[in-house]
C-alpha cells in the first residue's frame, strides 16, 4: 500500500440553491430582520379589533340571512350597470385590441408599427383599473361612462398583449406554406395566423368577460358606476345583510361566468 492509494472518504452534500454558507446566512438574517421590522410597523388598535369582532360576527350572520329585498331596487340598478358596462367594454375593447395586438406581433408587423403598438399596450397596462377609474371619473363625471372607459382600457391592455404574444408563437411553417401558394397578406393572416390563434383568442375573450365583471364590481367604489357603488353604500351604513346579499350575487355571477368561459375554452380547443 502506497500513500497515494489512501484517498479521503468521499462526502456528499446536497447542492444548495445559494452556494456559500456566509451568503446563505446573510440572506436568512436579512429575511428575519425584514419580517421583524415589517411586523413591528403594523399598528393594531386592539380595542378597535375587539369591537370589530362583534361586527365580523354580524357580517357572518348576514351571510346566513342575506337580505335581498330591502335594497333590491339599488341592487338591481347596480347589477344592470355592471353587466351593461361589462358587455360594452368587452366588445369595444376587442374591436380595438385586435388591430393593436396584430400590430404588436413582431412576426407580422413592421418595426415602427410594432414599437407604437407595444407602447400603447404598456400605457394601457401601466395603472390599476381603480386609478384609471379615478382619473376617468374626474374627467367624465360620475357614472357608468367612466366605468365603461376604464374597463375598455383594461381590456385593450390585456387582450392586445396576449394576442400579440400568441401570434409571435405561432408555427412559422404554416405561414410559409400559405405564403408559398401566392396568397396575399390578408389571406395569410386569415388562413395561417387567424386559424392558429383563434381558439386561444376566443378563450381569452371569455376569460376577460369574467374579469371585467369582477372589476366592474370594484370600480363603483370610486364612483364609476356598477354594483360596487351599491356595496360600498351598504357597508357604509353597516347594512351587513344587504352587503352579504350583494356579495353572494357577485360570487354566483362570477362562478357562472367562470363556468361558461371554461366550457367555451373546452369546446374551442
Amino acid at each position: 500500500m502506497t500513500g497515494a492509494a489512501i484517498a479521503p472518504p468521499r462526502v456528499w452534500k446536497r447542492p444548495r440553491l445559494v452556494e456559500g454558507a456566509a451568503l446563505r446566512l446573510a440572506i436568512f438574517a436579512g429575511l428575519v430582520l425584514y419580517l421583524v421590522l415589517a411586523f413591528a410597523t403594523i399598528e393594531v388598535n386592539w380595542q378597535r379589533v375587539s369591537e370589530g369582532l362583534v361586527r365580523a360576527a354580524r357580517l357572518f350572520a348576514g351571510f346566513l340571512t342575506p337580505d335581498f329585498t330591502s335594497r333590491w331596487t339599488d341592487i338591481q340598478q347596480g347589477l344592470i350597470e355592471s353587466l351593461t358596462m361589462t358587455v360594452c367594454a368587452t366588445v369595444f375593447g376587442i374591436v380595438l385590441a385586435l388591430p393593436i395586438g396584430l400590430g404588436a406581433a413582431r412576426n407580422v408587423a413592421p418595426f415602427w408599427l410594432y414599437a407604437i403598438c407595444r407602447a400603447v399596450i404598456a400605457v394601457a397596462r401601466a395603472f390599476q383599473e381603480i386609478i384609471v377609474a379615478i382619473l376617468f371619473v374626474a374627467m367624465f363625471g360620475f357614472g357608468t361612462f367612466a366605468g365603461f372607459l376604464t374597463l375598455s382600457i383594461s381590456t385593450i391592455g390585456f387582450l392586445s398583449k396576449l394576442i400579440a404574444d400568441d401570434i409571435e408563437e405561432i408555427d412559422p411553417a404554416q405561414v410559409e406554406a400559405v405564403r408559398a401558394t401566392g396568397a396575399g397578406f390578408w389571406q395569410v393572416l386569415d388562413y395561417a395566423v387567424a386559424a392558429q390563434v383563434m381558439p386561444r383568442f376566443v378563450g381569452l375573450t371569455a376569460y376577460k368577460v369574467d374579469i371585467n365583471f369582477r372589476e366592474s364590481s370594484v370600480i363603483g367604489i370610486v364612483g364609476a358606476g356598477g354594483i360596487g357603488a351599491t356595496l360600498n353604500t351598504a357597508l357604509d351604513r353597516y347594512e351587513f345583510e344587504s352587503a352579504a346579499a350583494i356579495l353572494l350575487i357577485i360570487i354566483v355571477i362570477v362562478m357562472l361566468c367562470e363556468y361558461a368561459s371554461g366550457w367555451i375554452r373546452k369546446t374551442m380547443a
Binding site: 404554416q174 406554406a177 400559405v178 408559398a180 401558394t181 401566392g182 389571406q187 388562413y191 392558429q196 383563434m198
Partner: peptide
C-alpha cells in the same frame, strides 16, 4: 408563386382547418 407548388417537410398544413380548406388554400393566389 401561384406557378410554383411547394411541399413541406413537416407537412406545414394549417392544423385547425379542414382537409378541404387546406387543399383550397392552394387557390388563394
Amino acid at each position: 408563386r401561384r406557378r410554383i407548388g411547394m411541399i413541406f417537410q413537416e407537412y406545414a398544413l394549417v392544423e385547425r382547418l379542414t382537409v378541404m380548406e387546406n387543399v383550397l388554400s392552394g387557390r388563394l393566389g
